[in-house]
Design a binder for these strands. Structure first.
Lengths: 222, 222, 222, 222
DNA sequence: ACTCACGGGACAGCCCGTTCTT
DNA sequence: AAGAACGGGCTGTCCCGTGAGT
């Protein structure tokens, strides 16, 4: 409840032209724009803002510079759009199919498992971590987007936890924010480790640990 | 025991010319080289390899290009040296003063607390995470260094845990690697969150959670 | 007499489609074409050929590029058309209302005063000087137009002077071409000075000097 | 006297590193810098700021971009330096050898003749006129330089005229500023005409007219 | 008749690295 | 050992012009 506003805000910023998607109709230019974003997303996600050149974007999209710059005024704007897209994709892949009618703990467990099991839909790893690290100290705009992204994710977890407390499934002495911090920290950290070691093991360990922790939050049956 | 070899390996790679340091004597050139590394480290750590220009390095070091390229053949080599330096600094700051005669659990707890409480000695955040994210997909050499860094850290935790099991302070059914994965994952993830939110809260939550987890590993008194 | 041909030639080249104007009817396309010229003229006059981009023209006209290129094959052609328009405007503003039945000297004085007192109807200063300076060494076509423009202006002065000589109002030992050269030189130079100093003073000085000079050309009463 | 300050100011700004020239010794870089200015001056003077590309400068100087941008931070700075050089050259060529001990009127006549007879030492015409027209409405910095240039020229004429009045050679009711305005206007305008017509005639006419005017300023012998 | 979309090349400026000089 | 000077190449961006679509 407390965070519903913030959460809705992220969906608004991350969805590119939702009305077009819902209508299923797009103008020629809008289609191209979406294609550019889709094709550019891996480039930025893998190489970072400074490491991705417009030449790379040209190759990835198959368009010439003139064609790209018609749809985005600057590389910065393109990077921002691709980040929103990448984040949106990552969110959809991980929490898109969580049943809101399930128990709060079940929802959280599902979120953790989905995160641990499904690789990032956009090549290059978690866009949130990538952008946070890449943009820190150099690109305030992108950093702000990453900030908003993580806050909305956090808000989502807090909202579910609060719901669980209210419905009596989660112990009332639980701190929702600490739960969110722990889940996100452990998952993102495990992702980093898994990337470096090229192994799924850290993710599985994180998943196990978080699941155990979540179960310990269950309210005792009356 | 199992990991002692690897651990010693990291100290070898991360320490720049330890014999010089121990001797306390350095040639003029070597001093300059160390200065370049020390002054460049924050630049690479904050902006990444592609984002840090030689012009930035020149400003940071106060040297002209010729002066820098006398000591490093390429930007790549300089970046590698600064990464080794940054990582070494980070390790020393966090686990340098851990008493090897303390209990295994005490050592691990101290490590966790030191990590959570002391900021990175090199500005720009954890060099391990930064380099892992920055070098992934673009710079195999730096990526390999980050890989070695995290593996040596992991080996250190595993070694302590194994020691605790052997000495009977840690439950024998404990998986040392899972412990290492969890510690590193949670701490690094919390660091990322803390950076994005500009708050120490995530780190404190991670510290609390890890401490509780470590205490649960204590072997029951006979 | 001698220059009447040349003078009529300038009106032909500088007037855009005079037959349409006389008829008072224009097709849609022709109207648009005229609008483009009218709106683009200040841009070219202020920034020069190389300095005026098609983007500037688009903003000034409110049309897209395609809409402009329908009416002009190249930027060069558009620039030529706008120059002709600007020059025509400037001429009309300065000598449009000179009564051909007045004395030759009166006509010349009026011309001088009109030039000194009325600013260029197209923003950016005298299109003749602008184009001459801008096109010299780089744009032969525009340079030729400027050449024709100044020659026709000169021809006009020469014609009036010759008329004055024939009618006995101007001393017969007067060199009409030198008169034209002096008038044009002094006025254009004063315009340049006035622009640089943002002051009307140079123009007034020039006007005074030319008036005095013209009066000295009056034939002595018999 | 009144304008001596202003006049000295222009010589200060227009002379590039006068101490080096006087000493006759220049470092390698300074020599290159002077060469760049000397070779670039005609390019800017002929094509204008927007019309002159760095590629043109490269061809003219025989240097690569890196070599040029070492000495000038931006194209703008290079253009400013070349303008100062061009103006200085033009001034030296026209009034450099005027004997300050001659009569005021003689000095002015010599100046007029020198201007009319000697072509601009830097190809492309009078840098003052070129820059004034080119920079107006687009380049305030260059415009300001042109402004200062013309003001210093004017100040020079005014100073000579004042000297003539004080020494009794010039009629005391003469307005020095009007004299300066007329001389500059007529000469610059004639230059424009001469350029357009590719003829020296307008310059000769201007010279004749100005000479006559100057003679009319002579104070009557007592 | 005009907008939208795109191509390909040119622009100023910055990049990393090398060489010459001191 | 360090600085000064220079070379090419690459960057993001803007350029003029064309053609499909409405």
């Amino acid at each position: 409840m407390l965070f519903s506003l913030r959460y809705s805000c992220i969906t608004a910023t991350s969805a590119e032209n939702p009305q077009c998607i819902s209508k299923g109709e797009m103008s020629k230019g809008e289609t191209t724009r979406q294609q550019i974003i889709r094709k550019s997303a891996p480039v930025f996600n893998q190489r970072g803002f400074a490491g991705a050149s417009m030449h790379d974007i040209m190759q990835a999209t198959g368009l010439e510079k003139g064609g790209i710059y018609r749809h985005f005024e600057t590389k910065q704007q393109l990077a921002a759009a691709t980040f929103r897209y990448s984040l949106d994709q990552a969110i959809q892949a991980r929490i898109g199919d969580i049943d809101p009618r399930a128990t709060a703990l079940a929802q959280l467990c599902l979120m953790v498992h989905a995160f641990a099991e499904r690789p990032s839909p956009v090549p290059g790893g978690c866009p949130l971590m990538n952008t946070a690290v890449d943009a820190d100290d150099t690109n305030p705009e992108l950093l702000q987007l990453a900030r908003e992204g993580v806050q909305s994710w956090k808000a989502r977890i807090v909202a579910i936890t609060c719901g669980g407390i209210q419905s009596g499934h989660i112990r009332s002495d639980t701190n929702p924010i600490a739960v969110a911090n722990l889940i996100i920290s452990t998952l993102e950290g495990a992702l980093l480790l898994a990337r470096l070691e090229a192994s799924r093991e850290p993710l599985e360990d994180a998943c196990r640990s978080l699941t155990a922790h979540l179960e310990s939050l269950a309210a005792p049956r009356p």
